[in-house]
């Protein structure tokens, strides 16, 4: 079933891609092939392989239980928030919070998670910013 759903999604992507390809504006100077042909060819290949999944799906993969799905989805959300908050609250605080969260969810005790979070954040800050001079996101506090 998973492969069938996957094939369906693939087919939608292929059709959407081909449709978008036909909408590409061609400029007045163009080569003999133009910017549309190759993308359409790719969409056809993607479509063919997707149809194959629909017709001949592989055995069901070993999906995690609902709880673990939520775990992964929530971790993705935290990382999304991290990306957005990075310029707002600065590298050190944002990283300490995120790394600590990940450590906790990967099985650390709360105290250990705090240590891993703060340690990771300060460690990266010292090595990459202070020693190597890489530019990290700066918040209102300047770090």
């Amino acid at each position: 079933m998973s492969d069938r759903i996957f094939g369906g999604i693939g087919l939608v992507i292929a059709i959407f891609f081909a449709w978008q390809a036909t909408l590409i504006q061609t400029s007045f100077i163009s080569d003999a092939v133009g910017p549309k042909t190759f993308p359409i060819l790719l969409a056809v290949l993607l479509g063919i392989s997707s149809v194959y999944f629909l017709l001949k799906p592989d055995p069901e993969p070993d999906w995690p239980r609902a709880g673990r799905f939520a775990e992964i989805a929530f971790a993705a959300l935290v990382l999304l928030a991290y990306g957005q908050l990075l310029p707002e609250i600065g590298f050190v605080i944002a990283t300490a919070l995120t790394a600590g969260y990940l450590a906790w969810r990967l099985g650390s005790k709360p105290l250990e998670a705090v240590i891993v979070g703060v340690g990771t954040s300060l460690g990266i800050f010292v090595i990459f910013k202070l020693l190597l001079g890489l530019s990290l996101a700066e918040g209102p506090l300047g770090f």
């Binding site: 990382l79 990075l86 990283t95 995120t98 990940l102 979070g117 990771t120 990266i124």
Partner: peptide
């Protein structure tokens, strides 16, 4: 449980360093 958070954060640092934009992180 200690290693993977570090891996994740270093990945973000590296990518952020290329362009300095949150868009790439997304």
């Amino acid at each position: 449980r200690i290693l993977m958070p570090i891996v994740a954060m270093i990945s973000f640092v590296g990518i952020y360093g290329i362009s300095g934009s949150s868009f790439d992180l997304m």
